[in-house]
């Protein structure tokens, strides 16, 4: 019983991290037609800034986290301005942007390594309290992660469906030319989309940095998994993304428990290939044709 709950907690934490990453990635994918390779380093930057504000500047973790999220929002504006805007209007713009995000990944990983050094660091936990349940324990950070992801993604859903800005994001996704003809500015939508995705990645990084040791490449694995989530859940709906994220999280937690850390990714990817062979449209039916 205890180990079943431990696996479940771990599945929910992983699912939450992947959901935060995948929802931002899918937002960028569906509006810009771009896979953002830089998403992993954005996660790492979120973690490193939060660590710096908490550990070096001595701020309370919550304050440090909020500050780190704000820093990442500013970085997002720069990211959009320098990596997306100059390239996206070209004929093969999506490809150029992807190359740019790949390049920035290598660059930022180097800068993080030089700035923060190779030492293993961890962000202080939000709360040292743990919750024990039938012989298993969940840390405060794990609980925050489990709650934060669905709440944030729920909020994103409300914005996309019920605010003028969100509706114009969806309009641009669904019909670019007609959206432009009724006055929607793609550039404004891109800023919003990239900003939101960066903030969600930063939050994933802050949560992850409190659970495991940080490294410049700490975002690589979550990025890979989030990519799988997109294939699994489809990019058409946040519900699909959320479901895909928890399915992958559960699969990973269960396989790690039974087969160990090194076999788990092999099995997850093997299952993914089988699923995509059987259902190339993804596990979850796409909402719009």
């Amino acid at each position: 019983m205890g180990s079943a709950i431990a696996v479940l907690v771990s599945a929910l934490v992983l699912g939450s991290l992947y959901a935060l990453m995948a929802s931002g990635l899918s937002l960028i994918w569906s509006t810009l037609g771009v896979f953002n390779f830089g998403h992993g380093v954005l996660l790492a930057l979120g973690a490193y800034f939060a660590w710096t504000f908490a550990d070096q500047a001595g701020m309370p973790v919550v304050v440090a986290s909020v500050l780190a999220i704000l820093v990442l929002a500013v970085i997002a504006a720069g990211y959009e301005f320098s990596l997306v805007r100059p390239f996206i209007r070209h004929q093969n713009g999506a490809m150029l942007v992807m190359v740019a995000t790949l390049a920035i990944t290598a660059l930022v990983q180097g800068v993080v390594q030089l700035t923060w050094g190779p030492q293993l660091r961890q962000i202080a936990p939000f709360s040292s309290a743990t919750v024990a349940f039938s012989g298993a324990t969940a840390s405060g950070n794990q609980l925050v992660a489990i709650v934060a992801a669905p709440v944030l993604i729920g909020a994103l859903y409300l914005v996309l469906w019920f605010t003028p800005l969100g509706i114009s994001v969806r309009a641009l996704e669904q019909n670019r030319d007609h959206a432009r003809l009724i006055g929607i500015r793609p550039a404004a939508v891109y800023v919003f989309v990239v900003g939101t995705a960066c903030v969600l990645a930063a939050i994933a990084g802050i949560l992850l940095g409190g659970i495991q040791f940080m490294s410049p490449t700490m975002g690589d694995d979550p990025l890979m998994r989030a990519f799988v989530v997109l294939a699994f859940g489809g990019t058409a709906s946040l519900g699909g993304t959320l479901a895909g994220a928890y399915i992958i999280g559960l699969l990973e937690a269960v396989t790690t428990y039974f087969f160990g850390l090194s076999w788990s990714p092999v099995i997850v990817f093997a299952v993914m290939i089988v699923v995509l062979l059987v259902r190339p449209e993804g596990l979850i039916r796409q909402r719009t044709a």
Binding site: P164, I167, S168, Q174, N175, A179, I182, I184, T288, A289
Partner: peptide, 19 residues
């Protein structure tokens, strides 16, 4: 134009007034 297939008629029209 197929417009915005996933938006409601009212949302499409309101969006028209956005600018």
């Amino acid at each position: 134009s197929r417009l915005f297939p996933g938006l409601t008629v009212t949302d499409c029209l309101r969006l028209g007034a956005a600018a």
